Structures are given as structure tokens and as C-alpha cells.
Amino acid sequence: MKFNIKNIIGTSVFLISQGMAAQFYVGVQTGIGNIQSDVKGTIAGNRLGGALKAGYVYSLTNHIGIGTGVEFSQYKQEVSLNNSSETLTNYEVDPSSSAFVYNVTTSNYNEKQTLHAIQIPLFLQYKTNINKGIDFNFRAGAKYFLPVNYKIKATANYVNGTAYYPDVNLNINDLPEYGFGGHDNYSASGEYQTKGTVMSMFELGFTFDMGVKNALYAAMFLENGYGSILDQGKDESYIGYNPTSIVDRKANGLYSTDKNAKIRPVAFGIAFGWNFK
């Protein structure tokens, strides 16, 4: 993947430096933005994605060109548990350095996720004239997907965190001053740690001349991420352990429960652009 990223960025920088010899474009895209995961017991819904983009297409022949640019994208979705009252287990260490099993049970847990990213595309374009002033376009290539931030807003009707110390066979269910017990109306914000990855991209559309030097571009697009954007060193409880309170618990997020989870962006929908010839 490192080889691909270096080539995408290097080629893109070179092409942008030659921008005066190319066709410039600006555009938007909108549709379904899905942050897919393989974390068991979770379900995602209300997916939405979009992007603003600008770039160049360099003509190599009358039909073939190579393009690059920069894009700013946003993904929004909601994630919850398949079983709204399921208990999830994690291992924690208390202030006295004693290890224990931390059990978290929630009621109607919901996680609103917002992911912002910068994308650097590198693609080949094929175009051919099909009627006066109308061209058929097909683009295929790759993008370097670099998350800027991946924030979450978690809520639940009820949260309960209990402890089991296996060394002494001790269960603690209600000791609020040490972070064990339950409370209503949980709400907290958090953020996932991320890293860059590579996406494939495809666009199929048409260009309509709007004058001698301008054209409208409309297309359908599909983007698929490879490799995970999650960058986490250990498994964590989706609602964190606070050794001094049951109210102020950190929102780590459902995807934090598996440090090896594959979290990847997938998007499809429609794109519109304006070409400056």
C-alpha cells in the first residue's frame, strides 16, 4: 500500500505542476457514504456522504486523458448494537494496578459518526463524442484517502458498568465513587484514531458543452476503500472506565472494541462538475 500511496501523491503533484496545459474542473458529489466495518454485533444506518472537488484532466490523445486533483469529503452515519441490551466485556486496570473484567450494559445505545477526509485522486479518463456537444466519459483509478477527523456522539437511555476481579472472585455492581454502577441519560463525545488508505474509483457519465470554453459534467460514481482507516493500539470498552465517577465516562465508540477491526469507506451516488476548457 505504501508503494501505491507514494505513486499516487507523486504523480498527482507532478501533474498539478503542469496545470496550465490541462482542463480544469470543479464539482460536487453526493450519495450514500458508508463506513463499513466487520465489528460483530453492530449495525449501521442513516448513511450519507458527499464531497467537494477540484482538479485537472490532461489529454494524452483525443480520447485518453489522465487526471488528478484534491477533494474534501464527509461521511455521516449512525451505529448501534444489534441487541440493544447486550453486555460487552473488556479488561481494565484500576488505580491500584489491579486488573479486572469490565462489563458494560446499555439501553438503546446510539452512536452518530462524522468522518471528514482529504482525497487525492489519480485516474485515467476515456471520452468520445456521441452527438453534437455531448461526450461520453469513463474514469477509473485510485485515491489516497486521508482522514482529517472521525468524531462520534454517543447517547444511551441507561449505562451500567460492573467489575469482576478474577484473582479474588469478587463482583462489584454498585460502587459509584470507584466508577461502578449505572445511571440514566448518557451522552458523550469522542473520536477514533485514524490512518490513510487507498480507494478505487469509477465514474460513468456525460459532458454537455455549455459554450466554447465551458461544459457541464454529470456522472454516477463508485468508490471502495482497501485496508482499514482505524489506527488503534488496543481493544477498548465502547464506554470507557472512569475510576472516580459513573457519570463522566468517555465515549470510545463501538469500533474501538476490536483494535484489528477493518473499517473502510465505501461511497456511491451522483457527481456534477463544471469543466473549463
Rank of each mutant, 00 (worst) to 15 (best):
231 D>L: 01
250 K>C: 08
246 I>H: 01
270 I>T: 11
256 S>G: 08
265 P>E: 03
258 D>H: 08
267 A>N: 09
237 S>H: 07
229 I>C: 07
265 P>S: 03
274 W>V: 03
261 A>Y: 04
258 D>L: 07
229 I>D: 03
251 A>Q: 04
247 V>D: 11
250 K>A: 14
265 P>M: 02
238 Y>M: 10
249 R>H: 11
243 P>K: 11
231 D>I: 05
245 S>W: 12
245 S>T: 12
250 K>Y: 13
235 D>R: 08
242 N>Q: 12
248 D>A: 15
266 V>S: 11
247 V>K: 15
249 R>W: 11
258 D>C: 01
273 G>L: 02
250 K>H: 14
267 A>M: 15
239 I>W: 00
243 P>E: 11
233 G>L: 08
239 I>N: 00
247 V>T: 14
239 I>V: 14
264 R>H: 03
242 N>T: 14
237 S>T: 09
262 K>V: 07
251 A>K: 05
248 D>V: 11
253 G>H: 04
241 Y>R: 07
249 R>N: 15
233 G>A: 13
271 A>I: 04
273 G>N: 01
269 G>A: 01
247 V>F: 13
246 I>D: 06
269 G>D: 04
255 Y>R: 03
235 D>H: 05
257 T>K: 10
248 D>N: 14
244 T>K: 13
259 K>N: 07
263 I>V: 13
235 D>G: 08
230 L>M: 06
272 F>Y: 07
236 E>G: 08
262 K>L: 03
253 G>K: 01
254 L>Q: 00
234 K>D: 12
269 G>W: 01
269 G>P: 05
247 V>A: 12
272 F>C: 06
266 V>W: 05
265 P>R: 02
232 Q>D: 05
257 T>G: 06
258 D>S: 10
256 S>A: 15
234 K>N: 12
254 L>G: 00
230 L>K: 00
269 G>V: 06
245 S>I: 11
232 Q>K: 09
263 I>G: 07
246 I>C: 10
269 G>S: 03
267 A>S: 14
234 K>T: 12
266 V>L: 14
233 G>F: 07
263 I>T: 04
252 N>T: 10
264 R>T: 05
265 P>V: 00
241 Y>I: 03
238 Y>G: 11
249 R>G: 11
234 K>G: 05
242 N>D: 14
245 S>V: 09
236 E>W: 02
